[in-house]
Amino acid sequence: MEQNTFNKDFLTENLKNLRHYCGFKTFEVAYFLNLSSSAYGYYESGRSTPPLEKLIKLAVLYGVTVEDLVRHPSELMAHIELERKLADIKRELNLTEEQLFLFKFIMND
Rank of each mutant, 00 (worst) to 15 (best):
F103T: 04
D68M: 07
L55A: 04
L86M: 13
L35C: 12
L86E: 08
L86C: 05
G41R: 08
L11S: 00
K16A: 12
E13T: 09
H20D: 09
T65M: 04
N7W: 00
I80D: 01
K16N: 15
Y40Q: 04
H79S: 11
P73A: 00
V70Q: 11
E98Q: 14
T49G: 00
A39I: 02
E44G: 06
M77S: 02
E92M: 07
P50T: 07
E44S: 08
S36P: 02
H72S: 11
Y31H: 12
L82D: 01
R71K: 07
E83I: 13
F101A: 14
E53Y: 12
T96N: 01
L76Y: 02
Q3I: 13
L93Y: 15
G23Y: 08
L76F: 01
V29D: 09
I89P: 00
V64K: 12
G23L: 06
L102S: 11
D9Q: 15
K54N: 15
Y31T: 14
G46F: 07
S74L: 13
P51D: 11
D109I: 14
K25S: 05
D88I: 09
T12P: 03
N34I: 08
H72R: 10
R91T: 14
V70M: 11
E98I: 13
S48C: 10
A30V: 03
F32M: 14
E97V: 01
F103S: 04
K25P: 03
N7L: 04
S48W: 00
L18T: 04
K57D: 06
S45P: 05
V66L: 06
M1R: 14
N14G: 03
T26C: 13
N17M: 12
L52M: 11
I56G: 03
L69M: 05
R71H: 00
K8V: 10
N34M: 06
L35R: 14
